[in-house]
Amino acid sequence: MRACTVGIIDYGIGNLASVVHTLRDMGFRVIVSNKAADLDVANILMLPGVGAFPVAMSILHERGLVDYLLQQADLGRPLIGICLGMQLLVNASYEHKYTSGLGLIPGDILPFANHGGHIGWNTLVVMDENSPCMESNGEDFYFNHSFFYQGPSKYQVAITQHLMPFASIIQRDNVVGLQFHPEKSQLAGKILLRNLIKSLVDA
């Protein structure tokens, strides 16, 4: 893979240090910024996040990043959302209150039944054998979330079982959402990130 720069969207929420270290260890150049001018040089954008949906969307609006992300997705620039970052990619979430998301992937974010948060290591089942994530089929990844994606099956690249099957990877064109934390999933996370970034950048 040719030299690749990952632009991490810094919107003041979540633990960016782990994502930055993981990507740098893998040989990627990394830019962390909330400014379009800085992020424009990146080959791929990444939207991490730890927190609650309404606060995160509010901060993205405040920092003028909503328009930027929509514009970049429209231009076909690859974008990967991680955990809360994945949830922000869809139409809306019901966390605390109904809040509109970026609407880049059709679907909504709903709570697990009975406060059944999904925390810990769980297995990925990749549905599409042509997916660049196929090498990660059957591997365990670290999840930490209380809400899940519900939307058309055609956008569900991988599923995981917790109380019911739910989407652990979603994708629409060059926009991909990972419900788990690859940067906290040790070797399995690095392999998945490498394959995914390579496929998106080389596409």
């Binding site: 730890v50 927190g51 606060v55 966390e95 605390h96 999904h118 930490n144 979330h145």
Partner: peptide
């Protein structure tokens, strides 16, 4: 804290 960081945190 839960409202800001999410219960899972």
């Amino acid at each position: 804290l839960s409202e800001r960081l999410g219960a899972q945190a």
